[in-house]
Amino acid sequence: MLRSKDLLGIRDLTPEEIKLIIDTASGFKDVLKRDIKKVPALRGKTVVNLFFEPSTRTRTSFELAAKRLSTDVINFSVPASSVVKGETLKDTALTIEALGADFVVVRHSSAGVPHFLSRILRASVINAGDGANEHPTQALLDLFTIRAHKKRIKGLIVVIIGDIAHSRVARSNIYALTKMGAKVRLVAPSTLIPLEVERLGVEVYNSVEDGIRGADVVMTLRLQLERQVKGFLPSPEEYFNLYGLTTERLRLAKKDAIVMHPGPMNRGVEIETEVADGPQSVILEQVTNGLAIRMAVLYLLSRRRRTR
């Protein structure tokens, strides 16, 4: 049983809760392999995807997950909404609740928005990415994928390469992996390493060769190309030279290391095409697992609501 009505971040979860979500996702993954991929678990419930930032992958994944559980889904994204007319976040959220939403899946460019909404809404709030804070379902699907391949999380060496400072995926993964006992290494230029990040129990490397050595899991992050303008990097080319995940660099990891990427990829910037499409890549599997994880999260939160 989850303790909160909301999923705001991995930071608030216990290792037991993380395990529960992944175990539950395992069951749903079997459902997704069936010919008829739908279960009636949440029939009559309403899920609203409230996306203030453009997203196709995460929104589609949540939408499909909700439909597989037989809920009604509404997509509310910025360009189509009254947000552009100057409606406040609070009013938008309350309006959506008034329509009868049981779940509000929110993505916003500002960190803390899901926390704000959770305080004013009775509906369960699920964080689908808030600024540079967290993207909890991404980390959960990453752990699910890692566990499927490595049969464990504890003791694994997981290296995360890329823009740690601005990445909610990195933060959620750092919390999730360290809670489950993995050793986490971060690799990035110093301009993209947030202050005092070592205190989260991770090791920091500037050199990708040093960081990748002996790793069980190699995760690269998407590089936002606007970072160049803001002075974090001289150019994407130099970034690729220094941090791009190439076949050669991947050889420094363990032989059976898996390669992960939260998508969407910039081929030739953070990852070489040969690696992205290579035998060690589990990138597409991540997408499938994301569906199962999101079903598990919706299902577990609704069970909690019912017994409350």
Binding site: N133, R168, L200
Partner: peptide, 11 residues
């Protein structure tokens, strides 16, 4: 800017 901003993902 410090440990807490790193955790919260705030600039």
């Amino acid at each position: 800017e410090g440990y807490v901003s790193t955790i919260l993902g705030l600039r």
